[in-house]
Structure formats: C-alpha cells, structure tokens
Amino acid sequence: MAATDIDVKYVAHLARIGLTPDEEATMSARLAGILGYIEKLKELDVTGVEPTAHAVPMVNVLRPDVVCPSLPHEAALANAPAQANGLFLVPKIVE
C-alpha cells in the first residue's frame, strides 16, 4: 500500500460527502501527510496478535424480548426536514 494512493474523489463518494475541487486538493495533501504518519504501524510485527474490538471484553449482553412504548408519532416526526402523511419525505428513490 502506498501512503498517498488515496483516491479522495472515490472515497468521498463512498462517504457521500460533496467536496469542491479546492477541498479535494487540500484533503488529498493533508491525508497524504496523515497516512504517511500512520505507516509507522508497519514497523510492528503483529503476527499472532488478536485484534481488540472492545476495550472491556464481555460476551452475550442481550435484552429480553419485551415491548416498550414507542415515541409518540408527532415526536417521531418532529425533527423531519420534510414529511407528509406520517412519512419522512425524500427525493424520489430510483435504484
């Protein structure tokens, strides 16, 4: 992996973040620096090391299958940028 091979346009698309050409250029430069620094991790031999996903190891944290009250309908929609007929409105979804 080359430190600076980040395709900012592609990754920004994956992340659904619109960038101006200027932002794209600055972003590339800054990320290249950070990725260069991160390369440091390659110095370490991590063979046989288990990855840590959780700082406190626990298993089987589950909840009982019990129904609790939902939000009142008005509260559920209170923050909606656009709504109609009890639905959250979005631009037409086309696959």
Binding site: R16, I17, G18, T26, V90, P91, I93
Partner: peptide
Amino acid sequence: DPLELYTRTRGAGFGAEVKRRII
C-alpha cells in the same frame, strides 16, 4: 435524488476536520 441530497447535505453540513476524518 437521495444520492445528491446526501452529498450536498453532508458536503455543506460538516466542517473540514470532520470531513477529513470521515474520509
């Protein structure tokens, strides 16, 4: 469409540091 809504909303809504870290 939703794609355009997402990229515009997130492009305008997040600041430079947040965008950098998300990317």
